[in-house]
Write a protein that binds this DNA or RNA. Structure first.
Length: 608
RNA sequence: GGAGCGGUAGUUAAGUUGGUUAUAACGCCGGCCUGUCACGCCGGAGGCCGCGGGUUCAAGUCCCGUCCGCUCCGCCA
């Protein structure tokens, strides 16, 4: 053990000292953030996760200490004992006009800027190599370098603040849910493989040659079984694993706040969750949310915003103008309508930033959504459209009125299949909102998205939009057999500033209804048994009505911390190819290890 | 699976039409400095130009391939 620590205990963090502490003898520990050597006197910024304190090694005070401090370099880990002094205290002694000087000496950039600590004892716990990048918030360093030296990156105040806040989020969540009657119960990570949905990571079973576990995509099935077992309010802050292609907001392992409740309807569940959000925002951010949160149906969201997760910090809305364009004589529009598509319009109120250049890049922007064309018009005096000719006066006036455009406004039109037109114009809405500075960045716009379709139909294939246990709306049950694509679900997403932060549903608990849902999904009895036999069995033994929700903790943390990248709220994240650059993972394994698992790797794999 | 951007000193970047010894800033090392806090001043070291091939008298620069990182589409939550 360090001699220093045998006789001293830290008295303050590096963010704690204030003017009122002047004169105290304190013990500080931390890392050398920076040093300014003035010969006789060395100023050192000492950093820990709470902040920075200036410490001073003065030759006149103690020459030996000064000699040690002279060696200090960035990121050395040290401990000191010293006296807290007001900045420049010794200057003020009887010298005229020094009061003002003293004031100028406080460093307003740091919390402890009024004081400094004059070192009387010191111990170097450990020296440090020159770090590959500066430990500062505004360092602009390549992600791969940051990830390789993640432990250094994590020393940066910004990331420390993010992880502190993430910890507050999970603590507050546990507090709230525990106080609301929820039990925290763990479920297995290594589970039965079920095809469909996201790809699973597989884990070979040595004890069962040729057999594999899957890493759980989510605890969905288990939490429903816990409801059957009578643990009627469950939660878990749990890791989930999905072997899909990655994005900024997607990691191969991510964390959910997973929740399930019995004897509830949508209203009760959503209200309970609103309470969680309100507590999180109050306790972690100090912000009062107004409850209840806004609700919007899936149909309205798609119609007005083109997406199922509208960003309501932006007021622009979409309008369906298919009717107005019928028989317009504009070829690409007529073609789209003839093919069963729609025409959608986005009104951009008069805006000087909406330049020719911005308009010209829209078709190219639309291409990434599969859009063939984007047309933008500007409304001139007398209802004239600048930019699109040939639309009859009457139709033009009707469309302009429906969109609600005024002279000087612009209207962006797209025409395509329903899904493409909506998704693309929804994307354009966000793109332009950003470019034109119309997104109110300081707002927290929550909303519940409700009544989504129960099934997704894609090229004749029908699939569960959420999962096959999602309950249809009672009034839609009869359409399960006749028009399944029209059945709406008792499902809901919580959307915040255009990000889906959570989603869930009321589950089916009646076996007759479940059978009809499976039938609509064209899942055979045999298949049902093979995949979900245990759940169907369990549902024979008095399952309660139940429903749940899961929040993406990483996404919540991203939004609450204002982080731009999900990697910035995860201590040890993975790259876009799922690798960990610090530990160099994943790696090949030895033939012996494979042998033990009865696994043979294809011989023509490229060697890394 | 597809599209785009990037990889040059420890870090971030510049590098012209292919042409002498590959620049700069910060950082690093040595020295000086009594109030700095992005301290300042003087001096110095530091390069497999991601990797492999090709074209050429000559490649950081052109061509082909490949690896890695990032963003997006598909996919997925």
């Amino acid at each position: 053990m360090s001699v220093f620590l045998a006789t001293h205990e830290r008295t303050h963090s590096c963010g704690a000292l204030r003017a009122s502490d002047a004169g105290k003898r304190v013990v500080l520990t931390g890392w050398v953030q920076n040093y300014r050597d003035h010969g006789e006197r060395i100023f050192i910024d000492l950093r820990d996760r709470e902040g920075v304190t200036q410490i001073v090694a003065d030759r006149e005070r103690i020459a030996a200490i000064h000699a040690v401090a002279d060696q200090f370099r960035n990121e050395w880990c040290i401990g000191i004992v010293g006296e807290v002094k007001l900045r420049g205290q010794q200057l003020a002694k009887g010298v005229p006009g020094e009061e003002r000087k003293l004031k100028a000496m406080t460093n307003t950039k740091i919390q402890t800027g009024e004081v400094e600590v004059w070192i009387d004892e010191v111990e170097v716990f450990s020296k440090a190599d020159t770090p590959p990048f500066a430990i500062e918030d505004d360092v602009d360093t390549n992600d791969s370098v940051r990830l390789k030296y993640r432990y250094l990156d994590l020393r940066r105040p910004r990331l420390q603040r993010n992880l502190v806040m993430r910890s507050q989020i999970t603590r507050t969540t546990r507090d709230y849910l525990a106080c609301t009657g929820f039990l925290e119960i763990e479920t297995p990570f290594m589970v039965k493989y079920t095809p469909g949905g996201a790809r699973n990571f597989l884990v070979p079973s040595r004890l069962n040659p040729g057999n594999f576990y899957a890493l759980a995509e989510s605890p969905q099935i288990f939490k429903q079984l816990l409801m059957v077992a009578g643990y009627d309010r469950y939660f878990q802050i749990v890791r989930c694993f999905r072997d899909e292609d990655l994005r900024n907001e997607r990691q191969p392992e991510f964390t959910q706040i997973d929740i399930e409740m019995s004897f509830v309807n949508e209203k009760i569940l959503q209200t309970t969750m609103e309470g969680l959000m309100a507590k999180l925002w109050k306790d972690v951010l100090g912000i009062e949310l107004t409850l209840p949160l806004r609700r919007m149906t899936f149909a309205e969201a798609m119609d007005k915003y083109g997406v199922d997760k509208p960003d309501l910090r932006l007021d622009l809305i979409l309008t369906d103008v298919t009717e107005g364009f019928k028989g317009s004589g504009i070829k690409f529009i007529d073609d789209a309508i003839a093919a069963g598509g729609i025409v959608k319009a986005l009104r951009i109120p008069k805006n000087e930033k909406f330049t020719r250049a911005l308009i010209d890049e829209l078709p190219n922007f639309g291409k990434q959504y599969g859009l063939k064309g984007v047309t933008t018009v500007r409304l001139q005096e007398g209802g004239v459209w600048q930019g699109l000719k040939g639309v009859p006066d009457e139709a033009r006036a009707a469309i302009t009125a429906k969109v609600g455009a005024q002279v000087g406004d612009a209207i962006v039109f797209v025409a395509d299949k329903w899904k493409v037109a909506n998704t693309a114009l929804g994307g354009i809405r966000l793109h332009l909102g950003d470019k034109l500075g119309l997104i109110r960045k300081n707002e927290w716009q929550f909303m519940w998205l409700t009544d989504p379709p129960l099934f997704e139909v894609d090229e004749g294939e029908i699939a569960a939009a959420h999962h096959p246990f999602t309950s249809p709306r009672t009034e839609d049950e009869d359409m399960l057999e006749t028009a399944p694509e029209k059945v709406l679900a008792r499902a809901y997403d919580l959307v915040l500033n255009g990000v889906e932060v959570g989603g869930g549903s009321i589950r089916i608990h009646r076996s007759d209804l479940q059978a009809r849902a499976f039938k609509a999904l064209r899942i055979s009895d045999e298949n049902q048994r093979a995949k979900f036999g245990f759940l169907l069995d369990a549902f024979k033994f008095g399952p309660p009505p139940h429903g749940g929700i899961a929040f993406g903790l990483d996404r919540l943390a991203m939004l609450m911390t204002g982080a731009e990248y999900m990697r910035d709220v995860i201590a040890f994240p993975k790259t876009q190819k799922g690798s960990d650059l610090m530990t160099d993972c994943p790696t090949p394994v030895s033939a012996k290890q494979l042998d033990e698992l009865f696994i043979q790797v294809k011989p023509d794999l490229p060697v890394k």
